[in-house]
Amino acid sequence: MKIAITGGAGFLGSHLTTAYLDAGHDVIVIDNLNNGSVNAVDPRARFYQIDIRDEKLRAILANERPDVVSHHVNQHLYEVPLAQSLLDADTHIRGLLHVLDSCVNASVRKFIFASGGNTLYGPVGEEHLPLSEETPLQPRQPADISRAAGEWYVRYYGQQHGLTHTILRYADVYGGNGKVNNPHPLNYFLHMLSEGRRPIIRGTGESMHDHIAIDDVMQANLQVLTRGNNQTLHISRGEGYTLKQLYLLAAQALGSDIEPVYISGALAEDSAIVLDNTRARQVLDWQPRVSLQEGITHLLRVQQQAQDSLNQQPQFAQVSRHSSLAHV
């Protein structure tokens, strides 16, 4: 199967590229490298450095004729100023529409849309957890508003143009191979503690979210190639952990007694979100297999490998790398 991945040089997209290639598929990566890294792109894939809003995208898809387009263009993970809301919408709504039009023109068979998960829903009482896909959305930040609107545009193209689709609402994804930075709290806590520095927790640390390992996300995406047509699915663990709990697990794994720094603020509102993955289990014949403890062990191994590689570099390279990590 030939698959084009928009945003294929980013965190999720680069892992997805390798997962598809390892499964024997022909993969095309499309990315403008604003939030990705060319070094993260698997060399077995064909890479096009281009913005999804560029008119050349239409010609690329028409020439390549992929069977599937997986839209994993990176969105802002944190709050953005109001002045940037227009830029966010231009990239993630107008850009999405250009990709969808190009897919219809190229007779793409299926479109996979990476949406949000935890941050699409408003805070609810724990008695209402876990949340199903039918729970009303309450997006409050530009990136989440774009995702919610994007879902409806994807469904519209399915109805009007017969474009088969699957919408994936991800829980917070942790893990990775270290080639592209992942700002998930676990990655952050382990990095800070391993350097002997105090991590920052905004708010009380009682916010509860659903978290899932990158390997489980990749398995779900492999299943989606042939299943889950015209469905909206939670790709989640179905379990909630607070920031405090994540920090304690990271500290225990490293044997650290460093205390975090708590910073209060209006943007640090406590919430409790857990995503019901029953539909994904049934429709995709999939289930998350990596426990949080196993995921932390893997992360520590990746960090150690990165450190060992760093130690083998010349001294001037070590200084440069350390300087960049300090600003993660």
Score class of each variant (00 low, 15 high):
275 L>N: 02
178 G>Q: 04
249 L>E: 14
127 E>M: 09
310 L>Y: 05
190 L>C: 10
180 V>P: 03
59 A>I: 11
158 G>V: 01
261 V>L: 13
71 H>F: 08
56 K>E: 15
231 Q>M: 14
266 A>D: 15
192 M>H: 13
306 A>C: 10
281 R>E: 06
208 M>K: 13
312 Q>T: 12
176 G>M: 04
100 L>V: 06
293 Q>R: 15
281 R>W: 01
135 T>W: 06
143 A>G: 02
123 P>T: 01
54 D>V: 03
298 H>I: 11
3 I>S: 05
199 P>W: 01
122 G>Y: 00
309 S>M: 10
48 Y>M: 13
217 V>D: 00
53 R>P: 06
42 D>G: 03
167 I>A: 00
231 Q>D: 09
233 L>N: 10
260 P>G: 03
126 E>Y: 10
192 M>I: 10
118 N>W: 04
132 S>V: 11
323 S>Q: 15
203 G>D: 07
317 A>R: 07
251 A>Q: 11
258 I>P: 05
15 H>P: 02
167 I>R: 01
217 V>S: 03
69 V>C: 04
101 D>K: 11
8 G>N: 09
311 N>S: 10
235 I>E: 01
298 H>Y: 15
58 R>W: 04
215 D>I: 11
150 G>S: 03
219 Q>S: 14
122 G>L: 00
283 V>C: 05
136 P>M: 06
4 A>Y: 09
206 E>S: 13
97 L>W: 02
175 G>R: 05
222 L>G: 07
128 H>T: 15
139 P>K: 01
277 N>G: 06
102 S>Q: 09
293 Q>N: 13
247 Y>I: 04
302 V>Y: 06
58 R>H: 07
233 L>P: 02
131 L>N: 04
132 S>E: 11
185 P>G: 01
270 D>K: 10
325 L>P: 06
283 V>A: 11
23 A>L: 05
42 D>M: 00
230 N>L: 08
184 H>N: 15
264 S>I: 02
245 Q>Y: 10
